[in-house]
């Protein structure tokens, strides 16, 4: 299971490096082959890449970047989709296309920030609890985790976000507070299993430090499931973020949050359908993209395990 190799003493250092490079390239090649075998995974990857690029370069690719800030132009309000306004304009005359693309920014940063806040502590707690399986440390950590897992995630996030001042940062905080237990659970399960594997026990016998065992022996073997879960979670975090902003607890106006745009546009359905429809589709696309990508990664890692 461990992918760490030991050098063959008969080979020279250079030759060994060369071989390692080749095999790595080969591994990547094989992985890409397997990944690309499923067109859905490739679509997911392409969607995610496209959205990330659009979000990064939003001020350059959108026709009216100023519409993402404090801006009103009532003379051009409520225009249906046209060449000038691909997704039409909203009730105060802002270009829905521009705002949707900028909306990706907040959605993506929501996902990225939440996951980078959540994964390190979640994983660390899982490692520790799993390694000290059966001790009081395990009990304390995992019961706290259970408490968090027992509350429905959206309800908990709503509760937290509504107590705090409504803004993007606090909604990130709210989602983070409810998301870490999933990683603790995941890593805990893997760790309890791995601490009895031969490579762990032999490292222990050779006198390796606990630090070494946790981070050098066990953690590398948890990486692929963690990555898979992260890419799947991106979608879900974005969706929860959109739900929060739908009820007014996320990005504050005039900044465009996809959820807020759907909520505001829904008032004008069905006549001004474009105001709500396009941001809603954008949420579908971004969540779907990350899910397809995550599924692809899961299949890939699952295949490698065997």
């Amino acid at each position: 299971m461990s992918q760490r190799s030991t050098a063959m003493p008969s080979l020279g250092r250079e030759a060994w490096r060369e071989m390692e490079r080749n095999s790595r390239r080969e591994n990547w090649g094989r992985a890409w082959y397997k990944f690309s075998h499923n067109p859905l995974s490739v679509i997911g990857l392409a969607t995610v890449l496209l959205i990330v690029l659009l979000a990064i370069f939003a001020p350059f690719v959108t026709p009216y970047p100023e519409h993402a800030g404090p801006f009103t132009d009532f003379a051009n309000a409520k225009q249906p989709p046209s060449l000038a306004h691909l997704f039409g304009t909203d009730v105060v005359g802002r270009d829905v296309f521009t705002r949707t693309i900028f909306g990706f920014r907040f959605s993506l940063s929501m996902g990225l920030v939440v996951l980078s806040l959540v994964v390190p502590p979640g994983v660390l707690l899982g490692l520790v609890a799993g390694y000290y399986h059966g001790t009081w440390l395990d009990t304390v950590i995992m019961r706290i985790t259970d408490i968090f897992l027992a509350v429905p995630p959206l309800i908990l996030a709503l509760a937290i976000a509504s107590v705090l001042k409504p803004n993007l940062f606090n909604s990130m905080l709210a989602v983070s507070l409810m998301w870490w237990p999933w990683y603790t659970r995941l890593v805990y399960g893997l760790t309890t299993q791995m601490r009895n594997e031969y490579f762990t026990t032999s490292a222990e016998i050779m006198g390796a430090s606990r630090w070494h065992i946790l981070f050098r022996e066990i953690l590398p073997n948890c990486v692929s499931p963690i990555f898979t879960k992260m890419s799947l979670d991106m979608g879900w975090v974005i969706l929860i973020g959109a739900s929060l902003s739908f009820v007014g607890l996320g990005v504050q106006p005039p900044k465009p949050g996809l959820g807020t745009m759907v909520a505001n546009g829904a008032r004008y359905l069905p006549d001004l359908w474009w105001i709500a429809l396009f941001p809603a589709l954008a949420i579908v696309v971004i969540v779907l993209g990350f899910n397809l990508l995550g599924d692809g990664l899961r299949d890939l890692f699952a295949a490698e395990e065997i």
């Binding site: 979608g235 969706l239 959109a242 739900s243 739908f246 009820v247 959820g259 759907v262 909520a263 829904a266 008032r267 359905l269 709500a276 809603a280 949420i283 579908v284 969540v287 779907l288 899910n291 397809l292 599924d295």
Partner: peptide
């Protein structure tokens, strides 16, 4: 999962009513 997401988004927009 794709259908699930679609359903969620629909539920989300139904919340407006």
């Amino acid at each position: 999962p794709a259908l699930l997401i679609l359903a969620l988004v629909l539920v989300l927009s139904a919340c407006a009513q």
